[in-house]
Structures are given as structure tokens and as C-alpha cells.
Write a protein that binds this DNA or RNA. Sequence first.
DNA 1: TTCTATTTGCGAACCGTTCGCAAAATCATC
DNA 2: GATGATTTTGCGAACGGTTCGCAAATAGAA
Lengths: 117, 117
Amino acid sequence: MRIAAILREARQYLSAAEIHARLERESAEVSLSTVYRTLEFLRAQGAVSQRTDEAGETTYLSCDGDHHHHAICRGCGRVEDVDCEAIDQFTEDLDQHNGFLLESHSMEFFGRCRACR
Amino acid sequence: MRIAAILREARQYLSAAEIHARLERESAEVSLSTVYRTLEFLRAQGAVSQRTDEAGETTYLSCDGDHHHHAICRGCGRVEDVDCEAIDQFTEDLDQHNGFLLESHSMEFFGRCRACR
DNA sequence: TTCTATTTGCGAACCGTTCGCAAAATCATC
DNA sequence: GATGATTTTGCGAACGGTTCGCAAATAGAA
């Protein structure tokens, strides 16, 4: 599917509107509705993850299912994977100190990638 | 101001609509517009931080300005502060491994607090 | 080919949020 | 207090991203 391919190649979070625009650019025209439906489908499949940006717009990123964290470049928007082995330690600490049972977490890092710094 | 007090006492992320409802409950009626305006004011002051939840709704939390991370209880919604001294190490690692200049980050932990687990 | 099931596009509806504007409240000055 | 200027408020319309309903188009099965 073209939408999945666009996301895979982009390596950054894209909004539905942005994806729609890119489809038009490669003259594979589909309606915005279809873009939303496809994204929802891909999300349900676990092929795509989503986040809402500061403006409240939902954006989508191709993902392979396993959990890792993202470093998002403020320059080009490119997303790199980061792994965080320290999380296990956190889980432990949170439990001990706060009595908080950690079930999931999300982390995002913002800065500038090698090319944009 | 009543809105700031509500947020301070709630110790959880509340939506504008929820705050509006709580104001009505204590018969301090103001319009939704005023709630939004006040929240924007408090945010600009740094007295309130905001996040957008899964549904895309903006929610607000009382905060004291300095940066720390949050453990959000899936049971009661209560937010606890977590500190993460490991971040400095991360910054170092990201730079070394990925050539990524870390400027800011956000982390959220989800689980169950002592009372709700 | 024919009938059925699925996917698509369109436009309206939805919902949280913002905006414009006029009414109301507040404040400063006399 | 009365007067006029400034600020805050409420209302309703507008906005923008997303969802929904429905009928037309397409794909699949028999």
C-alpha cells in the first residue's frame, strides 16, 4: 500500500493532510477519508504509531511493533530510534519509592540530528 | 483565582470542559471562553502545564515551573512527580552514539499508584 | 455475467478550541 | 458618587482536524 510506503520512506511523523498531499504529488489520488481509514487500519495492525503534536494534530510514523523511544530532530523532523536500558531500573525504583506499579511509559527526545546541528 | 485552585487541588490533568464543570459545581459560573483564556494565561505564567491526551483533548495540570516527569495513575488519574537523574547520562550517550544534540525531552509513565494497584 | 461484499469519495456533522464583538464590570480621576 | 477609559466577560459564529452516513464505484465469488 502506497500510504505505508510513504511513511516507511519518510522516517518522520506525518499528518494525514501531509500524507494526502504526498499522494497527490505522486498522482496516486485518494480522498482524505481513505487516508484516515487506511491509517486507522495500519495503526490497528501495529504497523504505524501515532502521536499528537503541539498543535493537536495527529501524526503518524511507520513502526515495526517493538517498543523503543524516539529522538525527533527539530531541524528536519527525522526520527531516530533510541534505546533505553535504564527503564528496568526505573520500574524498580518507582515501585520501591512511590509504590507505583509501572505499566507503560513514553519518552520523546527533541534536539538536532547529526545533519542539522 | 478559582481555576488555579481547582487545578492545584486536583493533582491531575483536567480538560477545559472538566474544569468548567467543576466551577459550575461550586456555583462559580464562568463561560467556557473564560476558562480557556484563564488557562492560557496561567500557562504563559508557567503555573500550568498542558498535554494532549489520547483523544486529542488538551488537558492542564498545575505545576511549579521546574522540570520533572510524571507518573500518571490509570486508576484515579492522579499525577505524581518522578525525578530522573539518568537524563544527563542519556544526553551524553545520544551525542556520542547518534551525533544527536539533545535539547529537551518529555517522559510519561503510566501505571497504578499505591492506592489503586 | 450476475449478484454480493468491500472500498471509495463526497459532504455533512462533530467536537474542542479560537475569535470578534458588544455588554458588563472594574478602575482611575475628578 | 459620577464620568469616562480600560479590562474582563459571555455569547455565538467560525475554524480545523477528524469522523460518519450514504450512495456510487470497484472487486470478488458463483
